[in-house]
Design a protein around this nucleic acid. Structure first.
Lengths: 221, 221
DNA sequence: CGCCAGATTGACCTACTTCAAGTGCAGTGG
DNA sequence: CCACTGCACTTGAAGTAGGTCAATCTGGCG
């Protein structure tokens, strides 16, 4: 039995404490938390499950902007409407507080502002990683980077790191990485053939050779 | 003579007021403000000129994460080191304050926290637009979107909107849009041939048909 | 005028997409 | 218990957008 560090949440404790004064809401897998263009009512913090944040084009094409894990903050818009949609990937529970409550708390508790600024910087940094991946990496490197990203998130949550759980479909991964389903599938087959990983099922990836997986993730475009 | 609205800054007035208590620094075109991995000392606000924020891969490939305009905030990291580099694209003047000063002000002035949170949300939203562009648009649409982005920024600064100033090289644009220099050049030629724009010089693009340019920007991948 | 860095254009090549068959597996019903 | 069904995934074959390599072109500047 290995010793694990305690789970690290991506949002600071003071922010999660604020959410714990709010409502707890459950969503079934596939349910919509909010849509692009909906008036902003609440902000959320994921308690359990996986949430996906997306943006749709006029023609219906979708780009997944993030996969969210427990502890992740959600609904960071100070515009009148949300600028992206959020859907439950698995059964999900979230904490919700009114957006107005977030604003009023920020306006009266400066220590919350510092924590919120730190959290914003972390979120921005994660998205910039995605920009780098989309702009500069080929399909194999994108998929390898994606697996490592999931692994990092599991590690932060003090879950196992040998087996990576992939709860999203190949199409979801494709919509996140700017590829097609088929290309994602081929990249997985390549990683398997290279000996970096093997598959329990399509949704469970065992890391065989972490160094090799990391090398695959750093190849240029 | 057309009536222009007053310039809109991307950072709130309260944030710019904070910077105006700091030092003003000038950089020559091409100078480095900070490098990826440097210890975080200051945060910045662009006063004049254009700044480029980049991230480099081990192999030297570069991804431009943002082109910054007057009023733009820069150095949003609460980690010990910067996670991206910043360079002056043109001659630049910036306001700088110590990062510790930003933190201490945030910790004592809650109204600053609200403004900072709003600014963070706006920055995040802009980067998510870039993610969408990189993930879902073809080369023509990427370049058209880029021109419209520059135009929007000029409009916010109450500059002219008929002529778009493009102070960066084709290579810079390519490094921003995840393309090659040649593909960017071909996309420009395509936009010119389509009648959407014409060229004063390589650095000055006149918008001939805004609706057509917008249509080009919305084509799928 | 001649130089030179950046930009354009052309020809060819490849990584990814597209379209089309399979394959495997979980859920259902006989 | 095993066939049936549907859906996600995999694999193959062919097409294409964009990359690569290489030859001009352009315009700003000494």
């Amino acid at each position: 039995m290995t010793l694990r560090p305690p789970p690290q949440m991506s949002s600071p404790k003071i922010v999660r404490d604020l959410f714990s004064t709010g409502r707890k809401i459950s969503f079934a897998a596939g349910a919509t938390l909010f849509r692009d263009g909906d008036p902003v009512t609440d902000v959320y913090c994921v308690e359990s499950g996986r949430v996906v944040v997306t943006r749709y084009a006029e023609n219906g094409e979708r780009q997944i902007l993030a996969f969210l894990f427990p502890g992740d903050f959600l609904g960071m818009s100070f515009a009148p409407t949300y600028n992206s949609a959020a859907e439950a990937l698995t059964p999900v529970t979230v904490w919700a507080i009114p957006h107005a409550k977030l604003t009023s708390e920020l306006a009266t508790r400066p220590e919350l502002g510092v924590a919120y600024a730190e959290m914003s910087a972390r979120i921005l940094n994660n998205v910039l990683d995605l920009v780098f991946t989309l702009g500069r990496k080929n399909s194999h490197a994108r998929v390898a980077s994606f697996l490592l990203h999931l692994r990092d998130r599991q590690e932060l949550l003090a879950l196992e790191t040998e087996r990576i759980n992939v709860p999203m479909t190949r199409q979801d991964i494709a919509d996140f990485l700017g590829l097609t389903m088929e290309t994602v599938s081929r990249a997985f087959s390549h990683l398997k053939a290279s000996g970096a990983v093997k598959f329990g099922s399509a949704a469970d990836v065992d890391v065989i050779d972490l160094a090799k997986l990391r090398a695959e993730a750093h190849v240029g475009s």
